[in-house]
Simulated scan of single mutants.
Amino acid sequence: MARTIAEIQNQILEEKGKQATLNGLTDNQSKTAIWRLWINIVATAIWIHEKIVEKNALISRPHTLNWYREQALSFVYGQDLIWKEGSYKFDTQGLSETEISEKKVVKHCAVSEVDLSSVINPDTSVNQIFSDYFHNQVGVVFIKVATESGGYISPVDLNVLSSFKEYIARIKDAGNQVIVSSLPGDVLKLHLNVFVDPLTIYIKPQDIKYYKELMMGNPIPEDYEFDPQNGALISKPSVKPVEKAIEDYLKNIEFNGAFVKSFLVDTIQKAEGVKIPVLKSVKTVSSLGLGNLAQQGNSAARNSEPLSEAQQLESILQDASKIEYFIPKAGYFDLKSKYFEIKVNYVPYTFYRDNRIE
Rank of each mutant, 00 (worst) to 15 (best):
K84M: 06
F263E: 15
V141C: 10
K103G: 07
V239K: 11
M1I: 10
I46E: 00
T21R: 13
T32G: 10
M216Q: 15
Q318G: 02
Q11E: 15
I41E: 14
S112K: 13
L335C: 02
L264V: 09
K240G: 03
F333I: 05
H63F: 11
S181Q: 02
L290C: 01
L95Y: 00
E341K: 15
P155Q: 04
Y77P: 00
L307M: 14
V278G: 09
E222D: 11
E54P: 04
I39G: 09
G289Y: 01
Y349G: 07
K189T: 07
S299E: 15
I220K: 11
Y152Q: 14
D157T: 07
A300M: 09
E305G: 12
K16N: 02
V138E: 01
V194G: 03
I208G: 04
I129P: 06
G24A: 11
A43C: 04
D80Q: 13
Y68F: 00
D334H: 10
K338V: 11
Q311R: 08
S101L: 11
I208N: 09
I129Q: 07
S304P: 04
F164K: 11
R170T: 15
N23F: 04
Y77R: 13
E50S: 09
N218W: 08
A57H: 08
F226A: 06
E225M: 14
T32S: 13
D354G: 03
K343A: 12
